[in-house]
């Protein structure tokens, strides 16, 4: 490119008056490096612009993101309520079972005591019988 042209376009560029086509020309020229010392800065600028355009978004776009946080919170509370009521239910059941077991153990114990006492009585009665029997034998 002619130096005079270059200077003209650069001036225009600085005033924001260049067309896209002219800017592409400038970009091509400056990314190739320049020999003009006082236009050195443009080389950096255009290099940067070219580099900046290469950056891409690496993240994939999701069009149906998982339900928003607020909605999630709502479901959390529902789940929590269910868990609490369920555990209450289970706890109540277990408590009832424990009470029944205790009562059963009580009954068993009392019955055992009763039966042992009855056995004692039975033995006494048996001795009585033997006693009566022997007396009868003697008396006969």
């Amino acid at each position: 490119m002619e130096f005079v042209d270059l200077e003209k376009i650069v001036k225009k560029y600085e005033n924001g008056a260049t067309s896209l086509q002219e800017e592409i020309t400038l970009r091509n020229y400056f990314t190739g490096g320049t020999d003009v010392p006082y236009l050195q800065e443009y080389e950096y600028l255009f290099h940067y612009f070219a580099k900046a355009k290469e950056e891409t978004c690496t993240k994939n776009i999701q069009l149906n993101p998982k339900t928003s946080k607020i909605k999630n919170l709502k479901w959390f509370s529902v789940a929590a309520a269910i868990v609490v009521s369920f555990s209450l239910f289970i706890g109540k059941k277990q408590q009832d079972a424990a009470v029944v077991k205790e009562q059963y153990a009580h009954v068993v114990k009392t019955l055992e005591i009763l039966s042992s006492n009855l056995k004692k009585g039975e033995q006494a009665v048996a001795t009585l019988y033997t006693y009566k029997y022997t007396i009868n034998k003697i008396l006969k």
């Binding site: 950056e55 891409t56 978004c57 690496t58 993240k59 776009i61 999701q62 069009l63 993101p65």
Partner: peptide, 26 residues
């Protein structure tokens, strides 16, 4: 990518820009 680059220019950090892009397309 253009949306992402503009977002990054304004929001500075890459993560912010990516989130912005995602939000916008949504």
């Amino acid at each position: 990518d253009k949306v992402f680059r503009l977002a990054k220019r304004l929001l500075v950090s890459k993560e912010e820009a990516e989130d912005a892009t995602q939000e916008l397309f949504f």
